[in-house]
Amino acid sequence: MIELTGVTVRYPNGVVGLDDVSLTIPDGEFVVVVGLSGAGKSTLIRTINGLVPVTEGSLTVDGVEMAGASQRTMRDVRSGIGMIFQSFNLVKRTSVMNNVMMGQMHAIPAYRSLIGAWTADEKERAFRSLERVGIVEKAWTRASQLSGGQQQRVAIARALAQDPKVMLADEPVASLDPPTAQMVMKDLQRINRELGITTIVNLHFLDLARQFGDRVIGMREGRMVFDGTGAEADDAVFEEIYGRSLTADDVLPGQA
């Protein structure tokens, strides 16, 4: 369970990323966070796994307090949280296998990780993660040779290899074409349902948000302005979240 109580995040340059956000996300939920860019969606996700420090308030992940936690605690919590990025963040010059291995790196001693001596168990675990997203046959391919959709699946596999309780995805489909975006979202949904991994996804396409969000959270200027089911999130709600009337840019092209 993830619990935020009055969380405020202020960046060193004075910009307020989150403004007094209180929120409880129970285990196994599939949450979609919507809002304009700069509304605090990214900050919310990065704060949950400690990449951005909490300025005020309390944030607990499975009972562990993240505000003011030590580097050591932070790393332990992070190892149980998988993260997926808009630009995939793969190392393109190395194999898919080595990229997926990054998800297990927290559990591999340095002397072995430095020379790349993976055990059979570790490799098997990477294979299984790749299997989940259906690209096990690409395990030994260089990441640079994959398409965007395949790269994002490798990134999902990397997160799965962590054996995470929570999965965070920051605009995971923003760099993908519409059909691929649908497939990647379905992968995330399936993983959430099959493995019961709590999943929080940032999106800016409202149709995807409605389609996949069991729960939709709206952010505006660092504040939480909506919290309800996907069905409740109608156009009026989105206009409220976005602070303007909806345009064709707000839906996934080819879907509207």
Partner: peptide, 10 residues
């Protein structure tokens, strides 16, 4: 339940 155990069936 984790990624490793359930996937082994398939």
């Amino acid at each position: 339940m984790n990624a490793a155990s359930t996937a082994s069936e398939t």
